[in-house]
């Protein structure tokens, strides 16, 4: 199942080309799909700026951003009502995965779990059909928001 996913790296480089213009505007930012996720992990920071766990926590809960609670329980956010259970609980997730793997999961979970996963890719343009005008050509999270969310996930350790 995971073998086929490596192929996804190919069209990615082409997508990346179209985005060089905007990449230049924000020097140092790795554009979506421009580098492959290999071995279920992505080690490089997308921005070179360390993630901020507090902002990541906010983006995680925000329905317009990560909306991660739609599918995941997370005891750290128990004050927020209604945690979904489409995906596994994220309690202690940093004890199960390392940072490069968490980055890969958030960027494009399909490169880690396989094409069938229902978890959206938050930093990829390999998305579904007929994206509406408001979201066309955009990623769900910005590069820095991915870094923030990943740094927040890294705080969710088993105690």
């Amino acid at each position: 199942m995971l073998k086929g996913l490596k192929n996804l790296g190919l069209p990615a480089s082409i997508v990346g080309l179209g985005l060089i213009a905007s990449a230049a505007a924000r020097a140092g930012t790795i554009e979506p799909d421009s580098l492959p996720i290999e071995d279920m992990s992505f080690a490089q920071s997308l921005t070179g700026t360390a993630g901020d766990p507090a902002s990541g926590r906010a983006a995680f809960a925000d329905r317009k951003k990560g909306n991660c609670l739609a599918c995941h329980e997370n005891a750290d956010l128990s004050k927020e009502l209604f945690h979904g259970d489409v995906g596994p609980s994220l309690d202690g997730v940093a004890s199960r995965w390392e940072e490069p793997q968490l980055r890969a999961i958030v960027m494009n979970s399909k490169a880690v779990f396989g094409e069938q996963t229902v978890m959206p890719g938050f930093y990829t343009l390999k998305v579904g059909a007929n994206v509406d005008d408001e979201h066309k050509g955009k990623t769900i999270l910005t590069a820095q928001e991915v870094e923030d969310v990943v740094s927040y996930l890294m705080t969710l350790k088993d105690n």
Binding site: V118, P120, G121, K126, V127, G128, A129, N130, V131, D132, H135, K138, I140
Partner: peptide, 10 residues
């Protein structure tokens, strides 16, 4: 069964 939208769900 078509995956659609930015969230890529069918």
């Amino acid at each position: 069964y078509t995956r659609m939208g930015q969230l890529n769900l069918s």
